[in-house]
Amino acid sequence: MAEGYAKKILPANKFKIESAGVETHGLNPMAVKVMAEDGVDISKQYSKLIDLQYFNMADVIITLCGDARDKCPMIPAQTKSIHWSLLDPAQATGTFEERLEGFRNIRDEIKKLITELI
Rank of each mutant, 00 (worst) to 15 (best):
L49T: 06
I62M: 01
I50N: 06
K44T: 15
A12C: 03
S19M: 02
A20S: 12
G4F: 09
D41M: 13
I75F: 04
I110S: 07
R104I: 08
M57Q: 14
A36L: 13
G26C: 12
E37L: 02
R69Y: 05
E3C: 03
E23Q: 13
E23R: 14
P89G: 09
N56Q: 11
Y5K: 11
L10I: 04
G4V: 11
D67Y: 10
A58N: 04
L49H: 08
K112R: 12
I50K: 05
A31P: 04
K7F: 03
G66D: 05
K71A: 06
K16H: 11
K33D: 15
L64Y: 07
D38L: 09
L10K: 10
L87I: 12
K8W: 06
K44Q: 15
I9Y: 07
R107P: 04
Y54A: 14
A31I: 08
K71T: 07
A36C: 04
G66S: 02
K7C: 02
S19K: 06
K48I: 14
I118H: 12
D88Q: 07
L64R: 05
C72V: 09
I110P: 00
Y54T: 15
M30Q: 14
H25E: 00
K112D: 10
N28I: 14
P73I: 08
K7E: 05
K7R: 15
T95W: 14
E97G: 02
E101F: 13
T24G: 06
G94P: 05
K48M: 06
Y46R: 13
G66W: 02
Y46Q: 14
A12G: 05
G39A: 04
Y54I: 13
D38G: 08
I17G: 00
M74H: 07
F55T: 09
P11V: 00
L64T: 11
M74I: 13
Y46M: 14
A92N: 11
E116P: 03
I114H: 07
I17L: 00
A2N: 01
A2Y: 06
L100R: 14
I106M: 11
H83I: 12
V32T: 15
F55P: 05
I42N: 05
E23N: 13
